[in-house]
Amino acid sequence: MHELAIAENLLEMAGQELRRHGLRKLISLRVRCGALAGVLPEALEFAFSALAGDSGETFRDVRLEIVREPLLLRCAGCGRDFTTAPGSLFTSCPLCGYEFFHQALSGAEIFFERMEAE
C-alpha cells in the first residue's frame, strides 16, 4: 500500500521536470523497481492512475512503464556475482551451488529513469 506514497513522489517529480522544461503534457514515464524493493507493480500502476486521473489534463492518459530489475547478488561461497529472478533472495548460486547468505549488490532501488513530454 506504500505504492501510493511512491506514486505521489513520481507525480511530483514529473511535475517538477515539466515546469523546468516548460512542457505541458506528460506522455510516458519509466520506473525501475529492484526485486528487493518491495513494490508491487500492479499496486503502483493502480495508485498512479488514480492520482493522475485527479491531476488534470497534463497527466491524462500517461503511459507508465514499470521495469522489474533483477537482484544482483555476490555469492557467499565463491565470491562471484550473479543475478536472480525477481524476489528470490534465497536462490542458490548458479556457479557453485552455495545456498544462502549472499550479499545483495543492487536490487533495492525504486528509480524514476526517464519520461517523455511535449
Partner: peptide
C-alpha cells in the same frame, strides 16, 4: 521530448 531523470523515488524521504 525525452527527459532522462535518474532519481530515486524515495529520495525526498
Amino acid at each position: 521530448m525525452e527527459i532522462s531523470i535518474g532519481r530515486s523515488l524515495l529520495e525526498a524521504n
